[in-house]
Design a protein around this nucleic acid. Sequence first.
DNA 1: GTCTATAAAGAGATAGAC
DNA 2: GTCTATCTCTTTATAGAC
Lengths: 196, 196
Amino acid sequence: MAGPRGEYRKSADRRAQIIEAAFDVFSRGGYTATSVNEIARAVGMTQTGLLHHFAGGKLALLEAVLDSRDKKAENTLEGRTGRDFLAGLIEISRAQAGQRGVVQLYTILSAEATDPEHPAHDHFRERFERIADAVTAALEETRDAGGLRADVDPRTAALSILAMTEGLELLWLNGFDVDMAEDVRRFIGTYLIDPL
Amino acid sequence: MAGPRGEYRKSADRRAQIIEAAFDVFSRGGYTATSVNEIARAVGMTQTGLLHHFAGGKLALLEAVLDSRDKKAENTLEGRTGRDFLAGLIEISRAQAGQRGVVQLYTILSAEATDPEHPAHDHFRERFERIADAVTAALEETRDAGGLRADVDPRTAALSILAMTEGLELLWLNGFDVDMAEDVRRFIGTYLIDPL
DNA sequence: GTCTATAAAGAGATAGAC
DNA sequence: GTCTATCTCTTTATAGAC
């Protein structure tokens, strides 16, 4: 199973290179405020040359960027459950502090995609649902293992944890000196019998 | 001290009416994705007719909208301190649930204004600073009255409370069934000796 | 105070040459 | 695979009539 060669390989490389550049530019201005031409210039091409690689136009380009990033992020939590999964959330928060671009991309996009007319609206709603469900499951597993406080509703708690994470990112992006990982750790701890 | 009359009065009314419409439209798409023409149509004017009332163009219009909203919001917390101020935060969260427009305006704008190049960048940074300072002061007052847990740093806690509030708003806008006021109440409670 | 007309810039998309 | 050229639409802003 060797990778593509010759012309195909060249095209795939180019595509990856474009996605990388698009990620940078989208990260600064979100989707709407960013032009394809801006991305094309960043990668040393013209607008038309770039769009040749993305049949669905600007939107297909954004989706390619999001797919690429989502895949990278899923690995940290792969196969973890219960308290171990919750600890993974803290690790992710810690890693975020070194990745302003990713944080900014998702923060700006998930806010502008709040509008049901936004092309990425469904993508972000589903993404939040997926995360919320996974955290809920981890809290339920923790409860079954006797590690959750008695008065905690897993779903409500999961949404609060997600909210805290997103909110801290917003403040951090605005230049505030917050320790995202530590604050998340403390907050998750308020739901547990033994702190993390 | 009667208000303006005749022609002046008419102009001031028109201005207020435009600000109201601009608020609605900005609330749906943020600043960048919204055109002046869209707002003009909403108020039954042309783009040029509208801009006649706002010398600084589109940006002056946004600033007028934000000024108008900020003034309305300040009243709830006016003159309150300590635990009473913290209770005010919960009242505000409760009120938000009936004002999707305001929440959406501030959520989208504070995310897109994360970019230092954004015209409203300074406005939002300063707004967050102001809120963070006020909450920090309220927590310090609560500590001086013996109501704060011993290991709580007021500034860190204030930022977490602000983060939680913003994050809950984002989830709520995305259609999640969160009880913003209740979740904020519970979270502030984790810092206090007696819950609110 | 509001309009029409228009300028000047920039967007995304397509056709077709090489 | 990438380009130039071009279309069409939309943006903000200005000039000037009424």
